[in-house]
Simulated assay, not measured.
Amino acid sequence: MRTFNWAILGPGHIAHKFAESLALLPNARLHAVASRSAAKAQEFAAKFGAPHAVGSYEELLAVPDIDAVYVATPHSEHHAHTLLCLRGGLPVLCEKAFALNARQSQEMISTAREKGVFLMEAFWTRFFPAINKALELVATGTIGEVKHLAADFGFVASYQPEARLFNPALAGGSLLDIGVYPLFISKLFLGEPQDIKAVSVPAGTGVDLTCAMVLSYASGATASLFSTLAAQTDNQCIIYGSKGQLHLTGRFHAANGITLHLTGQEPEVIPCEKQGYGYHYEAQHVQECLEQGLTESPLLPLQFSQELMQLLDTIRQQIGLRYPGE
Rank of each mutant, 00 (worst) to 15 (best):
Q106D: 13
L170N: 08
S21Q: 12
V54Q: 09
S219T: 08
L170Y: 11
F304N: 04
N5T: 09
R322D: 02
A157G: 00
P271V: 02
A99Y: 04
C211Y: 02
F153G: 00
E107P: 01
T82K: 09
A139E: 07
G241L: 04
R164W: 13
P202W: 09
Q232A: 07
G206D: 03
F153V: 03
Y181D: 03
A23N: 10
Q287S: 08
P74S: 14
L190H: 05
L135S: 06
A41P: 04
C85Q: 07
D152P: 03
Q194R: 08
L308A: 13
H285Y: 13
I238L: 04
F128T: 02
K187R: 15
E114D: 08
L300C: 12
G204D: 01
K147N: 06
C211K: 00
Q292V: 00
L190C: 05
P168Y: 07
E114Q: 10
D313S: 06
A230F: 01
A130G: 06
R164N: 14
A50F: 08
E58S: 11
G250P: 05
M120G: 02
V201L: 15
A15R: 12
Q275G: 13
G116Y: 12
P298I: 08
S35Y: 10
F155V: 10
P129D: 03
K274R: 08
D152N: 06
T82W: 09
H280C: 12
L302F: 09
I239F: 01
V54W: 10
I131N: 08
R29N: 07
N256H: 03
Q194I: 05
T259G: 01
P193I: 07
L229S: 01
N101S: 05
A163D: 15
L84K: 07
A34G: 14
A150M: 10
N167H: 13
L86H: 08
C94T: 15
V92G: 11
H13W: 12
F166W: 15
L22C: 10
H16A: 14
S216R: 07
P182F: 03
T228D: 03
I238F: 01
A212Y: 01
A255V: 04
P161D: 08
P301S: 10
L262N: 05
C272E: 05
T295I: 15
N132E: 06
I238Y: 04
D152K: 02
A171D: 13
D152W: 00
V92K: 10
G278S: 12
Q42R: 14
N5S: 14
L9K: 10
V286E: 08
Q317I: 00
L312C: 15
G179M: 04
V71Y: 11
N27W: 09
E288D: 15
F98L: 15
F18G: 02
D65S: 09
L321E: 02
A112D: 11
V54T: 08
V33I: 12
P267I: 11
A53Y: 09
S305A: 15
L183Q: 07
H13E: 13
